[in-house]
């Protein structure tokens, strides 16, 4: 049970700034996802919290105690690494017991704690197994258990499911969420998978070039992206550059009425919020391709100047390539100079 506070943290590697004046407070028991593309600084930030990198400037506190320059072995944090980082010369039990032995706990207590945490991650009875005999998912569970057995104040997860297949990843993230909620442990989770972040997080921090683009609840980040970058990064998004004049956004025949000041703008509309209707004449756009995903279909449409948009429809069979259509966005936002200037009321 702990509060993590990061104040104005910067990390520079010679000429590169990996994390730039980053500030974030993670509440007690909260699960925050750091989401961003490669090179956005999310892993560097996590490593600074874990003590594996030293901040160039700024302050990191856990429950009010400054840990900015405390080495990892003396921090109340537990980290789960992307590659599991299990010690293959030890069996599962010894992997978990290693940290407890270093703390000189009695043997009986070590045994009790290790068995309890193995049960927690669904690996009861696996103590004597060699780590190399485990599947990728089981290895990651052991890595999680190894961190949890020490009862850290802050749990740090650095893309822990990146090396697992999609099915296993979905199952494990649900398990991690269950365990986190059961233990009420303050957790910071780094991922570049938006699905993972949306499914897991109490709050998502979208990072870009070492700073925060947006920090909010997953539904807000998804529905009300603060910047075109967030809009493009979270979920699938159509971004169309155009001009607003007299309350209408236009881009070569594609016109959308909206109440914003005249000037250049970027219109953002998600495929599921972009309706298409058969056009009587030439229409706003032509269908390029229809891809059927079973539960839904994605229609690629080309505007007259070649800009391609995606629209989600229920049935693929109603649409065909070359068909002329009109576009009717139900929910959309407009951005100018990296800030939202209009959001439609209908969230789709």
């Amino acid at each position: 049970m702990a509060v993590l506070d990061i104040q104005g943290v910067t990390k520079k590697f010679s000429t590169t700034t990996a994390v730039d004046d980053f500030t974030l407070t993670v509440a007690d028991g909260e699960l925050v996802c750091l989401l961003g593309p490669s090179g956005s600084g999310k892993s560097t930030l996590l490593r600074m919290i874990g003590g594996f990198e030293t901040a160039t400037s700024g302050l990191i506190t856990i429950d009010g105690e400054d840990v900015t320059r405390v080495p990892p072995e003396r921090r109340p944090t537990g980290m789960v690494f992307q590659s599991h980082a299990l010690w293959t010369h030890m069996n599962v039990f010894n992997n978990l017991a290693f940290g407890l032995k270093l703390r000189r706990l009695p043997k009986a207590e070590i045994k009790r704690k290790v068995e309890a945490v193995l049960d927690l991650v669904g690996l009861g009875g696996y103590g004597s197994r060699a780590t190399t005999q485990l599947s990728g998912g089981q290895q990651q569970r052991v890595a999680l258990a190894r961190s949890l057995v020490l009862e850290p104040k802050i749990l740090l997860l650095d893309e822990p499911f990146a090396s697992l297949d999609q099915h296993l990843r979905e199952r494990l993230r649900e398990e991690v969420r269950d365990i986190q909620q059961r233990l009420k442990i303050t957790t910071l989770f780094v991922t570049h998978g938006q699905d993972e972040a949306l499914a897991l997080a109490d709050r998502i921090v979208v990072m870009r070039d070492g700073h925060t683009e947006q920090a909010d609840r997953p539904d807000v980040v998804y529905r009300e992206p603060a910047t075109p970058f967030v809009a493009g990064f979270i979920g699938s998004m159509n971004l169309v550059d155009g001009t607003i004049a007299n309350g209408v956004f236009t881009h070569t025949g594609f016109a959308v009425p909206l109440a914003a000041a005249d000037g250049p703008a970027t219109l953002a509309v998600r495929p599921e919020a972009l309706d298409i209707v058969p056009a009587a004449g030439a229409g706003m756009a032509k269908i390029h391709r229809v891809t059927d995903y079973g539960t839904h279909a994605i229609v690629d449409v080309d505007l007259p100047d070649g800009v391609r948009l995606k629209a989600m429809v229920g049935e693929a069979r109603n649409w065909s390539a070359g068909q002329a259509i009109d576009l009717k966005p139900r929910a959309f936002a407009a951005y100018r100079y990296n800030a939202a200037i209009f959001r439609s009321l209908d969230n789709g």
Binding site: F52, P72, E73, T77, M79, S83, G99, S147
Partner: peptide, 18 residues
């Protein structure tokens, strides 16, 4: 010996000698 296996050891409290 991967860096991460060493970092994992430091993370659970091992000093340099350990």
């Amino acid at each position: 010996v991967s860096n991460q296996s060493i970092e994992a050891a430091r993370d659970v409290g091992a000093g340099r000698l350990a």
